[in-house]
């Protein structure tokens, strides 16, 4: 990055930094000297640890992005939001049914949704968050699970919600209910689980466990990837 000659200015929690154009927020932060110990994870857009709120120059809109995926723009103001406080209720999936009653029992505040769509506006994954909350209210668990499938639980929706709903937790419940009660059983998966239980792969697993790091890496990178 340091070899890039064009720099832009970003404002991190109010302080200005010159950073390379075209870098992600995460690399820009590190370029500026921040050592990230929180609000950073897989760096590949999968883990949801690096949720960030930002505004761009000349635009009043507040936006949400993943620091590892969002490219800086000149005049951007940002703050990382490494965590959003929300209790995680403990529930027994076997004691619930895949309908609106389960939502009411575990997350009754979902029914406070006013359909303002603020959650959808902020979602870095472009998920129709409000739509799945609405599905939860009417008990359409399958559709809620489907719409929320790409959620990384970065938490920005829950931070912005005026009804104080924790959407991503409720969506997780929906996907669990879907998996437990509604998803079509996968015959292949069941056959594979049986085979594992039978011990068909014990020898191969033993072999892998005996390998050192370098050998494992070689196996990993040389692996055969089947694409449909």
């Amino acid at each position: 990055m340091a070899t890039e000659d064009k720099l832009v200015t970003i404002h991190v929690m109010g302080e200005a930094f010159r950073v390379p154009e075209g870098s992600t927020i995460m690399t820009a932060l590190e370029y500026a000297g921040f050592q990230l110990t929180t609000g950073v994870g897989c760096r590949e857009g999968f883990c949801g640890a690096c949720g960030t709120l930002y505004r761009e120059a000349g635009d009043y809109k507040i936006k949400g992005g993943l620091a590892c995926q969002t490219v800086v723009t000149d005049g951007m103001h940002l703050a990382q939001i490494p965590f959003v406080p929300a209790a995680k209720p403990v529930y027994d999936i076997e004691a619930l049914s895949p309908d609106e009653e389960a939502i009411k029992r575990i997350y009754p505040e979902v029914f406070r949704c006013v359909a303002c769509s603020t959650c959808t506006k902020i979602c870095p994954q472009d998920i129709q968050v409000m739509d799945y909350v609405q599905c939860l209210m009417r008990g359409d668990i399958a559709q809620a699970a489907n719409i929320s499938f790409d959620c990384l639980r970065c938490g920005l929706c829950g931070l912005r919600c005026p009804a104080e709903i924790v959407q991503y937790n409720a969506a997780t419940l929906a996907r669990r209910l879907y998996g437990r009660y509604l998803a079509r059983p996968s015959e292949r998966l069941e056959r594979r689980v049986e085979a594992i239980a039978r011990g068909d792969y014990d020898a191969q697993l033993d072999e892998l466990q005996g390998l050192d790091a370098d050998a494992l890496k070689k196996r990993y990178y040389d692996r055969e990837i089947k694409t449909k």
Binding site: C113, V114, A115, Q134, P162
Partner: peptide
């Protein structure tokens, strides 16, 4: 989405009219 169940009557609250 939810109709907004029970019309909200406060004169200044536009948010509750969005649904």
């Amino acid at each position: 989405n939810c109709c907004g169940t029970v019309f909200s009557m406060a004169d200044d609250d536009l948010m509750l009219q969005l649904a």
